[in-house]
Amino acid sequence: MYPDKFQYFTPGDIASLEELLDKYRDDSKILAGGQSIIPLLKMRFTSIPNIIDISNIKGLNFIELNDDLEIGPMARTAEVAASNIVAMNCPLLFDAAGKVADPQVRNMGTVGGDICEADPRNDMPAVMLALNADFEITNSSGKRTVNSTEFFKDAYTTALDSNDILTKISIKNIGYHGKYFKFTTMASDFALFAVAINMKLNSDETVKDIGIGLTNVSSTAVKANEVEAYLKGKKIDEKISEEAFSKLLNMIELDDDYNGTKEEKQKILKKIFVNGLKEVYGDSK
C-alpha cells in the first residue's frame, strides 16, 4: 500500500517552515518521524497534499536540563529512552519512551510526533498529562505556551492550529518518581490502556505532588485531576488506592468489546492502577 501523491518540503529553518504553513494551512501536515502519519497515508485513510518534513530544521532535536527538563519535538523516542538526563530527572518519561511501539519505530519516531498526532492509543499524551508538561508552540505571529491539560482536545485533535508547530516540551515536575504501566493485549504493542504516574513525597511520606495520566480510556488521554487532588497529602495504602480508583472510574469510558466487558476491563485497570500506585509510592519512599 502506497501513499497518494503529495508535494514534499524540507525547510531548513523555522521561518521557511512558517512560510509554508501559512501558505498551505489545512492542506499541509508536518512530518516529524512519520511513524503515525506514514501508515495512515499508506492505507489512504488520509491524503495530504503538502508534507513538510522538519528533520532538516536545526535546533529541534535536543534533550536539555535547564530549570526544567526541555525536550525538542524532533528528539527521537529511542534517544529519550536512552538519555541519562531523562533517566535521572524524569523516570516516568524514561520508562514510557522505552515502551512506545517497538525498537525500529522508536528509532524513527519522535516524542513530539507522538504528542501532536494525539491518537488516543499513543503513549505520550497521558505521560505529558501526568508530568503537567508545558508545550511551547510557535507560528508566524510568535510563540505561546500551552499546558498539556489544555492541549489534547479529542482523538487526533489538539490545540495546535494548522500553522502551529510544537517547538519545545518543558517538564517542571522533575526529580519525581514515576512509571508507565502499559497493558497490551497478547499480540499488539498498542496500549489496551495504560496508567502514567509521577509522584513526589513529603518527608512524612505523604504525597506532596502527584500526576496521573491515562491512555486509551476515552477519546483522548485523560488527566485524573480528582484522583490527584484526593491523593495529595495522603499516605498511600490499599484502601486509599481503591478509593482513588473509584474516583477515577467517573473520569473514564470503557466499552464492552472482544477484549472483555466493561466490568472485566475495569477489573484489569484497577489492578494496574492500584499496583502501580503502590509501586511508585514504594519507589518514592
Binding site: 497493558f183 497478547m186 489496551l192 472483555g260 472485566e264 484489569i268 489492578k271
Partner: peptide, 11 residues
C-alpha cells in the same frame, strides 16, 4: 479464549 489478562501479570 480472548481474555487479555491471561499471562499478562494482572490476575
Amino acid at each position: 479464549i480472548d481474555k487479555p489478562e491471561l499471562f499478562n501479570g494482572v490476575l
